[in-house]
């Protein structure tokens, strides 16, 4: 993980210093160089928390190899059980992210475009909790296609790529073209990575923060309403491997 972050930092630094040097401007969009590098570091760290304990292909694998059967026998809700497992796995990521943030951020220098503050950290927590839940529910959808399709790996990877790109895990969404901003604000992706990161960096007002939390919660409900019928329909097709 430390190596990942180091590589990420080097790439970000090389890319953005070149962009700033080429443009000859102090600001790109609303970001100065230190600010955009801070964004890069923070989105990497919050991303690790949001994706923490990532199920990856766990659900699809259980459908394919029949391990799902045991969960169908237990008197418990499969979705909640899997989320509990994911929560159990997220804590090492949280600890690592805190340690790395403490190591790196003091050396990032000052920026006019970001304001790291305790208030931002406190406001970020509910944003991260909701983002973690939304990421989990959204991740279930492509995996449940395993009830119908023989291989959902590529679909899952495609979903992951779209989520990262439109969620602001590579660059802030404010740098995307003007025409796309309306759609990006409505879609659920930005609440996964960009929103919690901007909250930490002190770039979200209290009103926008509350609106963001509410929107994220609504997306959690909407995604759950999509997942539940897919799960039920999929269950009708489940064979538990073999005859």
């Amino acid at each position: 993980m430390f190596v990942n972050l180091a590589v990420q930092l080097v790439v970000l630094w090389a890319l953005w210093t070149a962009v700033f040097a080429e443009s000859g401007k102090e600001l790109v969009g609303e970001w100065d160089l230190t600010g955009i590098l801070s964004y890069g570091v923070m989105v990497f760290l919050t991303g690790r928390v949001v994706r923490g304990g990532d199920l990856q292909m766990a659900v699809a694998s259980e459908i394919y190899d029949g391990s799902l059967s045991r969960y169908l026998l237990y008197p418990l809700n499969y979705g909640v059980t899997k989320y509990a497992q994911q929560l159990g796995n997220v804590f090492p990521n949280i600890l690592q992210s805190i340690v790395m943030a403490a190591c790196i951020l003091p050396f990032m220098g000052s920026s006019s475009s970001v304001d790291l503050h305790v208030t931002g950290l406190l406001m970020c927590m509910p944003s991260l909790i909701l983002a973690h839940l939304l990421f989990y529910i959204m991740g279930l959808l492509p995996q449940l296609v395993a009830f119908w399709a023989d291989n959902v790996w590529s679909l899952s990877v495609l979903m992951r790529f779209i989520t990262m790109l439109l969620g602001g895990a590579t660059i802030p969404l404010s740098l995307f073209p003007e025409w796309s901003q309306g759609a990006l604000a409505i879609l659920p992706f930005r609440y996964l990575f960009e929103f919690p990161t901007l909250v930490i960096l002190g770039k979200v007002s209290v009103n926008d923060w509350l609106t963001g939390l509410l929107t994220c919660a609504v997306w959690c409900v909407v995604m759950s309403l999509l997942v539940i019928p897919v799960w039920r329909r999929g269950n009708l097709r489940y064979t538990g491997v073999g005859i």
Partner: peptide, 8 residues
Amino acid sequence: KMLSGIIH
């Protein structure tokens, strides 16, 4: 499997 509720 049907009698245990795993499959429909």
